[in-house]
Simulated assay, not measured.
Amino acid sequence: MPEAPVRTDVAIVGAGPVGLFAVFECGMLKMHCHVIDTLEVPGGQCAALYPEKPIYDIPGYPRVGAGELIEQLLEQAAPFEPVYHMDQRVEKLERVGEWWRLTTTRDTVVEAKAIIMAAGVGAFGPNRPPLENIQAYEGKSVFYYVTKPEDFRDRSVVIAGGGDSALDWSILLAEIARKVYVVHRRPKFRGAPDSVAKLQALAGAGQVELVIPYQLHRLEGRDGELEAVVVRDFDGGEKALEADRLLPFFGLSMDLGPIRDWGLDLDRQTLTVDPFTCETNLPGIHAIGDIASYRNKLKLILTGFSEAATAAHAIYPRVHPGEELHWEYSTTKGVPGRA
């Protein structure tokens, strides 16, 4: 039985970094937020998949851990007293008069004057490599993300993939692992050029071994404990890499779930928005971050932060009709509860 509705100014679907910053931007415009997310704690992929992964493109932070970034965003949002509804998914969206009503899998009902979709890639999970009996090794010696790099100290690690995650963790784990192999099907990597250059330098120094062009073929071990990863080239030649850990980075499987049925304009796994307001085709529903799509968009966290500000300003007249917005910079306006 659904609970009695709770009303708020803005409902934010997604508690990743962009959703958390939207709380701050709305708060600065005197708009209160309820935040809904499927994960048990705020932070999105930054908290669930790689809390200790370094991020290098946040302004003012030459290097910041993903988990640390989430902590800072939560602290930044805290003065505006957002309400978090965690470990639940929005199942139903409907229009009730001037309000949008959201009902979750836990029967939480939130009614809001506007909605900000900050759901990232939607529900996500790793793309498993097609290796026989891989499930027996998962959680013991095969991992799809790194939460504690120290768990890999003095280990022999095979990293498979050619994107940013594979490059980032190869570079970081080269400092603490006993051995790092990087398996990729071709010499060209898809990651940032600077990361590719760092990896090539590590390989030249003998700190990383590039196993190219090869693909994962078979796992060898017992009782979930890995002993070797067998790789195969395109001519059928095989090579056994002695290793006790495997990190396959082949991206995430994405599922928008019920969002697909809400009447929003979709562009594959994203929502089409007006870049000047971040509003979707449904008035009062905005989308920001990875779930938002428009021409020439850059999928960066800092782009999502900018979109959070854009959406909040576009929403203000809906929440405060007839009130003129006298915008002040935070340096002059300050933040509630802070000197």
Rank of each mutant, 00 (worst) to 15 (best):
D164A: 08
D164V: 07
D164Q: 08
D164C: 13
D164K: 12
S165Y: 02
S165I: 04
S165M: 08
A166W: 04
A166P: 01
A166H: 02
L167V: 03
D168T: 09
D168R: 06
D168P: 01
D168C: 10
D168G: 09
D168L: 03
D168Q: 12
W169T: 04
S170C: 14
S170M: 04
S170N: 05
I171H: 03
I171K: 02
L172N: 12
L172I: 15
L173T: 05
L173V: 10
L173I: 06
L173P: 04
L173N: 01
L173Y: 00
A174C: 11
E175R: 14
E175F: 10
E175S: 14
I176Y: 06
I176G: 06
I176R: 06
A177C: 12
A177M: 06
A177V: 07
A177E: 01
R178F: 10
R178K: 15
R178I: 04
R178L: 09
K179A: 04
K179Q: 12
K179H: 14
V180C: 10
V180K: 09
Y181L: 11
Y181P: 09
V182T: 04
V182R: 01
V182C: 09
V183R: 04
V183C: 07
V183H: 07
V183E: 00
H184A: 02
H184P: 01
H184C: 05
R185Y: 11
R185Q: 01
R185I: 09
R186W: 08
R186L: 00
R186P: 03
R186C: 07
R186I: 02
P187K: 14
P187Q: 15
P187S: 13
F189R: 05
F189S: 03
F189E: 00
F189L: 12
R190V: 03
R190W: 03
R190L: 05
R190S: 07
G191A: 13
G191Q: 00
G191S: 11
G191C: 11
A192G: 07
A192M: 14
P193G: 05
P193H: 10
P193F: 06
P193Y: 08
P193Q: 08
D194G: 13
D194V: 15
D194Y: 14
D194A: 15
D194M: 15
D194W: 15
D194H: 14
S195Q: 08
S195P: 01
S195G: 08
S195D: 02
V196R: 04
V196Y: 06
A197D: 13
A197N: 10
A197P: 10
A197M: 15
A197R: 15
A197W: 09
A197E: 15
K198H: 13
K198D: 01
L199V: 13
L199Q: 00
